[in-house]
Design a protein around this nucleic acid. Structure first.
Lengths: 222, 222
DNA sequence: GCCTTAACGCAAGAGGACTGGCATTTGGAC
DNA sequence: GTCCAAATGCCAGTCCTCTTGCGTTAAGGC
């Protein structure tokens, strides 16, 4: 997990000192408030006070707290060390443990909890969260591609589906049920996903692919 | 899935006609508003108008919209037909398909989405949701117990863990990512959980049991 | 260094959640 | 039928989110 502070607003027509300073201050203040009070008790005016700017500025640039949280995604981008392993199970264990480890980082946990909460209310936040998660699955997909190359799992196995199966029980406990999750849970999830992938369960028929971040053809209903 | 309308407020000291009428009207109005507008756009005063009562009454009896949503749980209790099957996979398929089917019911979907959203913000709502889900897992646990009796999965297999593994990917897609979920996804989830259970993955060491609705000993951390 | 204007600060206000006071209705005991 | 109190209705008010108008500051081209 690597923090990469963005120094200026990308789309801004005037990305100079003050604008960038404001953005950084607001994002930092928001993250601090999220850690201290949680998403439900985070107030925009307190963020403004903390960042030493006017609340109006926040509403003008972000529109709402939700959009600040979404904007924070770039600051909390993650990386994961995969590739030199000899088995899918090892790689998935790494993935699952990384999810648990990220959850132990107060800043990351507070932010992702906020993202999940926002996603349950606003379609745009939901899209943003889906995009973040899809990007993470993309990063981890190499584990499945290697496993296919090794002949460990059948060709045509959908990497996203495998990663999803790995992290789903963890996410559910961490962000919905609010239950503690440890390495043992991570390992169990990784093993379960490996078994399913080896059994060819995630070889999806063409047209029902859970592609990278762009759901074109939805799974056939009913 | 069976709807069982409660006719009066259980803890009320005056469960007579008007009180019960008010409660029913509010719950029905809330459900209707949830279906029409979603949790984020559901306003308490509109519920009051729809139920032909004063908003003050709602705030006095429930305190907030969140508590009405929690209160709706009793009205939306579910049942599931399990028991005569010959294999764990069949039973888990039934469970997974029931989850998908429930999600296709507008009222149930709107309510559960609201519950999830509320759970991400309020500890009490989170507890209520956990309790609802734990109760559902309890109902489904018979499938695992039968499988143990048949010798299909090892003794000591934790039923809740098996059910959780079955429904986790479905819940995640339905209520967090907002992606469509069909019977194929349900069957895949059921098969994956069956494989893992047969492999003895959910035989938990004593002390780390994910018991029925009462998490006494949390999974060891770090 | 000057000028344009994007970005910001301040103040006023709308809308929704929630509370408390007080009058009114009504269930249920007698 | 009478009566008490719980439940409800109405109203005024607070708090927070978010918007809008207008004056001020400062970034970046010249």
């Amino acid at each position: 997990m690597t923090q990469q502070p963005t120094s200026h607003a990308p789309g801004s027509r005037r990305p100079g000192g003050r604008t960038a300073r404001t953005r950084t201050a607001v994002l930092e203040a928001t993250l601090a408030e999220l850690v201290e009070n949680g998403y439900a008790d985070t107030r925009v005016d307190r963020i403004a006070t903390r960042a030493n700017i006017a609340a109006t500025t926040i509403y003008r640039r972000w529109g709402s707290l939700e959009n600040i949280v979404v904007d924070l995604a770039d600051e909390l981008a993650v990386t994961i060390g995969l590739g030199e392993s000899a088995s899918l199970e090892d790689d998935l264990r790494t993935v699952a443990r990384a999810v648990v480890t990220l959850n132990e980082d107060p800043a990351h946990r507070a932010w992702l909890q906020a993202m999940v909460s926002a996603a349950t209310r606003s379609p745009s936040a939901r899209t943003a969260l889906s995009s973040v998660l899809a990007h993470r699955r993309d990063i981890c997909s190499v584990a499945v591609r290697d496993a296919i190359a090794r002949g460990e799992v059948p060709a045509g196995t959908d990497p996203h589906e495998v990663i999803r199966a790995t992290v789903a029980p963890l996410y559910l406990r961490m962000y919905i049920n609010g239950e503690p999750v440890g390495p043992a849970d991570a390992d169990r999830a990784a093993t379960a996903a490996t078994l399913a992938a080896r059994a060819g369960l995630y070889v999806l028929p063409p047209g029902s692919a859970t592609g990278p971040a762009t759901p074109e053809a939805p799974t056939p209903e009913a």
